[in-house]
Amino acid sequence: MSTQTISGSLDEYDDNKDMCPICKTDRYLSPDLKFLVNPECYHKICENCVDRIFSLGPAQCPYKGCDKILRKNKFKTQVFDDVGVEKEVDIRKRVFNVFNKTIDDFNGNLDDFNKYLEDVEDIVYNLDHGVDVEKTEERLRTYEELNKQLILNNIERSKKDIENFSQRQQFEKEMKLKKKLLERQIEEEDRFNKEWAKKEIVNRLMSSSGNDTTDVIEGVKNTVKLKKSSARRKLEELNRVLKDNPYFAANNMGQNNRIKSSIPYTPFNGDRDLHQRFEVDETKYNDPLVQELEKRKDYIASGFRTDFIYERVLTEAFMGLGCVISEERA
């Protein structure tokens, strides 16, 4: 990886990693010293200097020979020691935020998807190495312009994916727990059955007179087999559920499913008045007829609720208030 485009003017400053090249403050002396870089030129400057130099507005980079105009809000903490790496990571982030198609956008066609990825790599390379920067930037902008909707959708989608992922983890955790429980239960049953079989065989052998020993043992074993089915059945059922795991199914169904799931869940599908013209406020009602009933045992035990009564009569009071028959039925 080459860092030549920015290293030229960097060298003379870069001999001390822990010193701000501008104010010469050293990290040994002030341990709180934090370095920031600006993606315009990736020149490392300490926080204090950034504050001082750029607080009043955009200004030129203080590095000698660097003519970039920098804004304070674009400064960020340097993550990687190597500014070259830092820069490439930033470029990737920026490009992939725009070129955010997934294989689903190619209806699963791997060749097309690979070709697309190669194109994107070219763009990253060009920007990183200063090749045709203007032209490449232009390409990025044009693409963004043309694919705005798609890009937004894909951002939504990846948010969902993260959400789905954590929900799936939760689901699997729950199921694993259940499996463990069942397995333990089965183990216990098995142990119990073994004990029981032992005793049973001894009992039967003692009470039976001269029967074939093997018959008795077979008989007891068969009973045990029948007995232990319940927990096993449940385990089988659980395994079946895990096999048909809807999470995996959903992931394999591809784009169609994705589009559907991007619609937020609507409990009522619109079948609800969002702006009811009233509010039930039982504290303000004097309604002796209803309030009397509220105290009666047979009403309380039945599940009678005054708010149901109030909600109902108030709904009917305003239901149709806004319908004008003379206009609507004309």
Binding site: T266, N269, T315, M319, G320
Partner: peptide
């Protein structure tokens, strides 16, 4: 999806 207000319910 269809929004149904209480007035619509009367309708």
């Amino acid at each position: 999806y269809k929004r149904i207000s209480d007035d619509d319910l009367y309708r």
